[in-house]
């Protein structure tokens, strides 16, 4: 059954890849052409859709907002998760396991259940953060924590004890071990966490819809949604906008996946 595995993989690739290909091609075709023959190739590629996207109100602004919010939330959640995971993996303190379980419990809370209470919390009378970046960065980072802590704790637990001891003898305290030894060795896990969180946060819609009403503070998913609302679904423009929206994710993925290559710890200890 040598052919089976490649065949399955090829089928999966077709299923996941085709919509992307169609999107890319459709972005380069005029609206009329697209309506007439939805599945044809772009014989005369046109950049008109892209021009229209940027000419429309607020797409560029939404793009910048999304970049800011996503970068900040990913940075905060990854940093906090790494520090917490290191403590859970390598330090002994009372209540460690209980606290860890509490972190994990965060994973069983469906984020949308918290929408109403978050809406109140962020609203006037609460933190009064609505229509600010912080209103999104906080919840995004918070909901990203449990999974990130889980992944990173496993990675930190894999660090050989001898390496930690060697670092202590070399003059490192807990933070030194974390910063100089544990973090660099956990790069594959960090990359996983960054990709995973970036993807989730970049695509998040419900929180953004609830916590942001100022048009100037909208994030990309909201802006994309409006392509449908305002213009009666301009297919070509929507595809162009989607193509642009995917770019940062691809960049993150390619930057991080090099780090995900296994075997980084080879040579630390015997073997």
């Amino acid at each position: 059954m040598r052919w089976l595995r490649p065949a399955i993989l090829a089928a999966l690739l077709a299923v996941t890849g085709y919509p992307l290909v169609w999107m890319t091609f459709s972005a380069l075709r005029t609206e009329g052409d697209l309506r007439a023959q939805p599945f044809a190739l772009p014989m005369r590629p046109s950049w008109e859709n892209y021009r229209a996207v940027f000419a429309g109100a607020g797409f560029g602004r939404a793009y910048v907002n999304s970049l800011l919010v996503a970068c900040a939330a990913v940075a905060v959640s990854t940093g906090a998760a790494a520090a917490a995971a290191f403590a859970f993996a390598r330090m002994r303190f009372r209540g460690r396991e209980a606290l860890f379980l509490l972190f994990l419990a965060g994973m069983i809370i469906p984020p949308h259940v918290t929408l109403i209470s978050l809406n109140r919390l962020m609203g006037p009378g609460g933190l009064d953060l609505k229509d600010t970046y912080l209103a999104l960065i906080g919840p995004y980072a918070g909901f990203a924590l449990p999974m990130s802590v889980l992944i990173l704790r496993t990675a930190f637990e894999e660090m050989p004890r001898d390496l930690e001891d060697a670092a202590r003898l070399d003059g490192c305290g807990a933070f030194g071990i974390f910063w100089h030894v544990a973090l660099p060795l956990a790069r594959p896990a960090l990359a996983t966490v960054v990709i995973f969180n970036a993807l989730t946060i970049w695509n998040e819609f419900a929180f953004a819809l609830t916590l942001v009403s100022d048009r100037g503070m909208r994030t990309l998913p909201l802006a994309l949604w409006e392509f449908k609302g305002e213009r009666g679904m301009m297919l070509g423009q929507t595809c162009a906008a989607l193509c642009l929206a995917v770019l940062p994710l691809l960049a993150v993925y390619f930057a991080a996946q090099r780090q995900m290559i296994r075997g980084l710890t080879a040579g630390a200890v015997k073997g």
Binding site: D162, D165, A166, A167, L169, G267, A268, K270
Partner: peptide, 20 residues
């Protein structure tokens, strides 16, 4: 006294050199 302040050095069975 912390290990780093004991003026000792240790060689480990598994080498424990930093792979990165």
């Amino acid at each position: 006294v912390a290990p780093k302040d004991r003026d000792i050095a240790m060689v480990f069975q598994n080498y424990a050199i930093y792979p990165h």
